[in-house]
Design a protein around this nucleic acid. Structure first.
Lengths: 196, 196
DNA sequence: TTGCGAACTTACTTAGTAGTAAGTATATTT
DNA sequence: AAATATACTTACTACTAAGTAAGTTCGCAA
């Protein structure tokens, strides 16, 4: 594969996750990479094309990650920890995740990019649903909601907290993520609060 | 106040919440209202100006709502229910909330609009933190996290679930919101699951 | 009735956007 | 050596965006 092509995808993703899809231009990419506008069009004829490729790359990356975790025998707790690390890394970079940045722009994306984004969301939701479900069966997790609903609650929290962390300084992202993990921990001893 | 001015704010807000800030134009507004481009500039010289006014209007509306609830003596449970209804209404309209739609675009907004958006986020977070805190003292709510952390978890869930609901059809928004309320309900009988 | 301000329109500028057609340099194959 | 493909650049088109200056209409106050 072409190295320029890969750089365009990487930079495009970065721009989407920090400025949003409708705020970045081919100029942003070409000037940053020291090439001309038309060179970007050489690899990605249209912006829709680039957007779709970026989402596809992210789907691929996600599936590689979950595949790796399975083949390495990570248990569900470990898998969830690894998944959440994606978000803490995004937070350090002051960026959103792809779903959280493209989601609000869904109505302005082409049909194909929309479809790819929906696909990505569903893949992530399905993975987390299955992971929670399996983890609960093994007593690694404890929660009372349906796994899909719980998955949705967790994903939503992760997505929007990245957005909110850029708005409100006093947010401690780490403790936020730890609260999500803690909530799932079993042996809660009846959920009774100790007096203070 | 001018009725045209109000219509512009209302329509601008609607456009932001469905297409995003960087995807809507003065043309969108003028053509919809049957006026000319320059007429919008007459009321709001710049787009930054319009954006800031829209956020300010939302802050005002939120503070009126919480003020009303307090003066009418709503208890904390009732207040939270009313707050969540804002989001179920947004969901029915297939729109995001202002924070959820402008948040991802924060880096492309003017300093003043940014400041106003941050202010709005902080006002909402503070209100929910206080409501959760007071409600727990009265034993209307039960949760083990710090009130601010719990508030953040709930707000994040609400914001991003609006985004995700437009991506994934199978999401039942109502049960999602109910799960958030249920999670706060006291007398959980030790949080032990019944065998199935 | 005249003057004036509010609420616009007309007609424009400037700047940035995606996108394209045609050309060029370089490396690789035939 | 000639042909071809890759990876671009040059130079542009068409369009849309925000924003502005100057003019118009109309109701109301002096």
């Amino acid at each position: 594969m072409s190295i320029t092509r890969e750089k365009i995808i990487e930079l495009g993703e970065s721009l989407i996750r920090s400025k949003g899809y409708n705020a970045f231009s081919y100029q942003d990419i070409s000037s940053e990479l020291g090439i001309k506008n038309a060179a970007v069009h050489y690899y990605f004829p249209t912006k829709e094309n680039l957007g779709t490729s970026i989402v596809r790359t992210n789907i691929q990356r996600f599936e590689e990650m979950t595949g790796n975790m399975n083949s390495r025998g990570f248990d569900e707790w470990h898998q969830l920890e690894t998944f959440i690390k994606i978000y803490t890394k995004s937070h350090r970079e002051q960026k959103l995740c792809i779903v959280g940045s493209l989601g609000p722009d869904i109505n302005t994306l082409s049909e194909t990019t929309q479809a790819e984004l929906r696909k990505m969301s569903e893949i992530i939701l399905k993975w987390l649903t299955d992971t929670l479900s399996n983890g609960r069966e093994k007593a690694l997790f404890s929660f009372k909601e349906e796994p899909q609903l719980k998955a949705l609650l967790i994903i939503s929290s992760l997505i929007a907290s990245l957005q909110l962390a850029r708005l409100i300084n006093k947010i401690e992202y780490k403790s936020f993520c730890m609260a999500i993990m803690e909530d799932l921990r079993p042996q809660k001893r009846g959920d009774v609060e100790l007096d203070k």
